[in-house]
Amino acid sequence: MSDKKTITFALMDPPYENARSTTALRLINIAAQRGYNVNVFAYEGAVGLPFTKQSPHPNAVHGHDADEEDHPLPHVWIEAIAASAEAAGGKLDWINCGLCVDERGVHEALDFVRRGSPADLWQWAESSDNTLVIPTK
């Protein structure tokens, strides 16, 4: 019997608004690097995390052009985590709440991101070793 762990995360914060988003990605990254199967259910603003139209920009205050600034883009970090999971023998599976995507118009997401509903979160929770909800405030 496989001892590979499966952990589900439910996220709610949009990108660039709260430290919770970064902490969530740090946790997901740790689990991915262990080769765990990691499920992410993105709810509300969190559906913007894998939005691929996020763009880098220069930063005059830092004296950097866009390349030098190398501004963090959550969708790029998520893609890197997915690659890391695969390299470690695990998998990052990501479901965006479909209604949340529609109301925010953030349809352009990373290729592996699927649409879903709270029923998917429950199904994942039932089949995972554990689930952590990281709410917004």
Binding site: S117, P118, A119
Partner: peptide
């Protein structure tokens, strides 16, 4: 949205 999602999950 949390009461909503709870209702939806119970429905499932």
């Amino acid at each position: 949205t949390i009461l909503w999602t709870t209702t939806a999950m119970r429905g499932a």
